[in-house]
Nucleic acid binder design. Structure first.
Lengths: 279, 279
DNA sequence: GCTTCTTATCGCGATCTGATGTTATGTTAT
DNA sequence: ATAACATAACATCAGATCGCGATAAGAAGC
């Protein structure tokens, strides 16, 4: 029972330089993310393999796998699991691993500066938007519309914030509401601001992995006066399946300070209004 | 500093026979409910009065009052608080005090028996509906639509349940979403069942305190095939401001076993289909 | 300006929840 | 039928959170 991998975990976490930052994620969540990566890499693994690889009990492995299956990242069969088409992995695990905490909060601070009391803002289901929620508390009164459950939960606690929940079909993968019902709810609104993020950004366009998400984001773009795209530099080299919109559809594209200067220039050359958020 | 009212609380809670059942409510929540009742009764009281009356520190009193103000039950002014128009108190505190746990869960069990895998059900923002949520887990697959945040939170965890969140304007008083946006979201649906509750039931009609709530409930009534009203016997002697709908609009009215026989008969005499849920 | 009330911050203690392993009881394949 | 695997049902432990008060700093009224 590989006693070297058990508890007494006082080490400051594996860290694994080169990989995304996994700190400040709950232990099981981190392990699940790592398991997911492991499964995607190996295509198909047995539960016992995972027991050995991660030094936890079978029971725990199964619990993790159940959770990952619930999120649609893997499929279970008797004896093990297989990876699902990568898109889900991308948008889920990437989201969980790739915290980029510092960048996100820099973007959020920059965004916050645009908002003034009395305004209405719309937020999408992104961690960047979530970071912004924490900063809204004292820009009151304020109206906030979002389809992101964690954001909704946080906002219910705030006084002087009119919360407009955008309902729809719940997606465990994103922990948000989507689909047609959500798009319709969005159509019925018009807010001063939209703050959103996407999974990938090319010099000319914003991209996203999933079609249903694109549906909602497009609706959001139509329903806000000033549209702000929050981009941490990790997004800039990546690519994704569906083209969401040209960057010129956004009034502002905010990038973090770590973004290479040439990439910023490339965005500007293509007509985007880019602002750099200091860390 | 009245040391007799402090901690060491091994007593099985004051109980206060004659008053609604306040057990299984968190301590602060219970105290807040009692404070609310106290304020409503006295119309206007000072913070210090409450310190003495409840044997807690000023700080705690203020925290409680802040929470109650957030819920719209009281209004603070320098030195104390005043009660707000009773309707809010009714629908909020009554909801918190009057748990009637046993009855609710009896109603829920009865309701659950009507549901079969594959169906779609709509739930309103009532504690009765919440009790039902706990029983849905193994009637899968299932589609559930609700505007009640606690229900939504619970349902996000369930696999094989398609959750359709009904968005709208968040109400701290009810911990649910409402208003026009919500009503519109409801209009767009059509479910097999609606399970709902109201604040008061006369022999012929269902009533509710608040207009906006009525708006949503009416929409729900229009959007379900089979409408079920869950009524614990406490509701039957009470009255409320707005008439929601005649009882004959419901396909079934479920009451708990403790309901006096003559009241059940009265409902039936007026044309309602009444079923009694065994405890 | 002084008093009274309110809010912010910290710390302690009790409580709760979450995470995990173990044992026991199904299930499925061979 | 039997072995391998999966789930269910406790028990335990640790960490996080909550509830609360005390003190201190900050408004608001007189």
């Amino acid at each position: 029972m590989s006693s070297d991998t058990v508890d007494g975990d006082t080490r400051p976490a594996p860290a694994d330089p080169g990989r995304p930052d996994t700190a400040e994620l709950s232990r099981p969540a981190r392990r699940q993310a790592e398991i997911a990566a492991y499964v995607v890499e190996h295509g198909s693994v047995s539960a016992n393999d995972l027991v050995e690889a991660f030094g936890v009990s079978v029971m725990t492995v199964h619990r993790d796998l159940d959770e990952l299956e619930r999120q649609g990242v893997v499929r279970k069969y008797r004896g093990g699991v297989t990876a699902q088409p990568t898109s889900v992995f991308e948008s889920n695990v990437a989201y969980r691993l790739n915290t980029a905490q510092a960048e996100k909060s820099a973007l959020a601070r920059h965004a916050r500066a645009m908002i003034e009391p009395g305004m209405s803002v719309m937020l999408d289901d992104s961690t960047s938007a979530l970071a912004l929620v924490d900063l809204l508390e004292d820009i009151t009164p304020l109206t906030v519309a979002t389809n992101f459950l964690p954001a909704i939960s946080k906002l219910t606690g705030l006084r002087d914030v009119t919360l407009l929940a955008l309902g729809g079909i719940y997606s465990a993968t994103h922990d948000s509401f989507g689909g047609m019902p959500c798009a319709e709810a969005v159509e019925a609104l018009h807010t001063d601001f939209l703050f959103c993020s996407v999974s990938a950004v090319s010099p000319t366009h914003a991209f996203h992995q999933e079609e249903e998400i694109v549906l909602v984001k497009r609706a959001m773009l139509r329903s806000a006066r000033t549209k702000v795209l929050l981009v941490d530099h990790g997004k800039l080299q990546r690519t994704a399946l569906h083209r969401l919109a040209p960057l010129t559809d956004f009034d502002v594209v905010v990038v973090d300070e770590k973004t290479p200067a040439d990439l910023v220039q490339a965005l500007r050359d293509n007509g985007a209004t880019v602002e750099v958020a200091p860390l």
